[in-house]
């Protein structure tokens, strides 16, 4: 009995400490931590608010985070505490199965989001994002309206660009090699046939003989999208490879000069955009064909089918934002 009393005294004492700890770490911040709203914080309109509820209801935050960390390169600006004053309940997320969405607003046109939510694999082959084709038109409109507000269209590069260290490095290389000269492109063709064609194919379509063994198909360099790559980005991708895929880090085997020749050659492959896909606004899953090849994309197939001479909205859009960035 006596030992029990001793324990009880201790228990009361410890319980006090315990409650203090809980108070300090869970409740107290709500009174002391009240950041001012930043220019990115956004008070949602009713449609956007409904869209945010769709986002919560469909569990998008189990796969998408909404905070950019300082080590996240190419995801746009880092977030600040003040960005979140209207984010109640929070949608920070803890797992990135898909990309961070803190800067998604303005990255794609609405039509792209409609197509992507309806059948993600039509526009992003190999994506494991679920299809949300069951959403009503109203839900879809609101959801897209919400997505377009996130990050307040902070300007950001459309696709990946080479990190600065590679830009500097390439600058040095380019002084010795003119990547726009056809003679260098021809030299690059030779190196390409020896090292790359078994995967990327002789015509650069990503259908080389080895590609059939791969889950992630080699890049298809004839896609109009690659027309947007600048020289340093080509150089960087060849030099460092694509982690997580079978694309090697060529800097380990090829010289800087060889890689510059390859840049000169690869630049000759992509076709500029040639056709318009039209506005897609569907919630019908079956209406969006999936490309057969992993390295193709719905918009490009549509463009080839309809071939009307205008550029497809997706690429045109990217040209626009790119202009704004430069």
């Amino acid at each position: 009995m006596k030992s029990n009393v001793n324990y009880l005294v201790a228990a009361v004492f410890v319980a006090l400490i315990f409650f203090t700890i809980i108070y300090v770490t869970a409740i107290l911040p709500a009174t002391t931590f009240t950041p001012n709203k930043s220019d990115v914080a956004w008070e949602y309109s009713s449609s956007e608010k409904r869209g945010r509820d769709v986002y919560r209801r469909e569990g998008c935050f189990y796969c998408h985070t909404q905070f950019v960390r300082y080590q996240d390169r190419e995801m746009g600006e880092m977030v600040k505490a003040g960005d979140y004053v209207f984010e109640t309940p929070h949608l920070l997320g803890t797992e990135r199965t898909g990309p961070d969405l803190s800067n998604i607003g303005g990255k794609y046109p609405d039509a792209w989001h409609w197509a992507h939510h309806t059948n993600p694999r039509a526009v992003k082959p190999g994506s494991i994002m679920p299809s949300f084709s069951y959403l009503s038109n109203q839900d879809m409109t609101d959801l897209v309206a919400y997505l377009q507000t996130i990050g307040q269209k902070r300007v950001q590069p459309r696709w990946i660009v080479a990190p600065q260290e590679f830009r500097d490095k390439f600058h040095g290389v380019a002084e010795k090699t003119d990547v726009n000269a056809s003679s260098f492109a021809n030299a690059g063709r030779g190196i390409y046939m020896q090292n790359c064609a078994q995967c990327h194919g002789v015509t650069g379509k990503g259908n080389g003989s080895v590609s059939m063994t791969m889950q992630k198909k080699p890049a298809n360099f004839t896609r109009p999208f690659y027309a947007g790559y600048d020289d340093a980005t080509w150089y960087w991708r060849i030099s460092e490879g694509v982690p997580g895929t079978r694309m090697p880090r060529w800097a380990k085997t090829l010289s800087d000069e060889d890689m510059a020749y390859l840049v000169a050659f690869l630049k000759t492959l992509p076709k500029p955009p040639s056709a318009k896909a039209g506005d897609i606004s569907v919630t019908d899953y079956a209406a969006l064909d999936q490309p057969e090849e992993m390295n193709q994309n719905f918009w490009e197939i549509e463009a080839q089918k309809h071939g009307s001479g205008e550029s497809d909205p997706f690429t045109a859009y990217s040209e626009e934002t790119k202009g704004a960035h430069e």
């Binding site: 990946i160 990190p163 997580g244 895929t245």
Partner: peptide
């Protein structure tokens, strides 16, 4: 800094 759709099938 590789876009996730490039490696997510892996």
């Amino acid at each position: 800094a590789i876009p996730v759709d490039q490696w997510s099938v892996e």
